[in-house]
């Protein structure tokens, strides 16, 4: 059945879109957004694995027999991961704001250029 792995393939496409955003874009905010896309696609991967065909949410129904519940363990794992993900995004954004204060730009290549110039200047000062 083709559909059997469809979820995983889409997750991989999303993951690679986020990965491309992180490595190909110089803008630091864009990099952070790419990181959060990557993160969300990992969440989708875990939740896809926890799904049982014909299952229902893992909230116990009293008195009911033979109910299929989806696997609650990946759900718990991902709940923790979502909150930690927001914490890392917040720290990343704070770093970007500080970098912008210091360099006046948030483009990674411009910052590297400035760093290189500063290093060259301090090296020359030392030689002279």
């Amino acid at each position: 059945m083709i559909y059997g792995l469809y979820n995983y393939w889409v997750v991989i496409v999303l993951m690679m879109a986020g990965f491309y955003c992180v490595i190909a874009r110089a803008n630091l905010i864009k990099k952070l957004i790419g990181l959060s896309i990557f993160q969300t696609s990992v969440f989708l991967l875990f939740i896809s694995m926890g799904k049982k065909a014909g299952g229902t949410a893992p909230i116990l129904i009293e008195g009911a027999e033979d109910v299929i519940y989806s696997n609650p363990l990946p759900h718990v794992l991902i709940l923790t991961a979502i909150v930690v993900g927001v914490a890392t995004t917040a720290v990343g954004l704070a770093l970007v704001v500080r970098i912008n204060e210091e360099f006046g730009t948030i483009e990674a290549d411009e910052i590297l250029e400035m760093e290189g110039e500063a290093k060259l200047k301090s090296w020359r000062d030392n030689v002279d």
């Binding site: 989806s70 979502i82 995004t89």
Partner: peptide, 24 residues
């Protein structure tokens, strides 16, 4: 995919809080 707890956490934290942080 039956992950109700994850769904509302993602809607509140991922769609809400992260967007506000980024805009800030």
């Amino acid at each position: 995919m039956d992950a109700v707890d994850v769904a509302f956490t993602e809607a509140a934290v991922g769609a809400g809080l992260t967007t506000v942080l980024m805009l800030g």
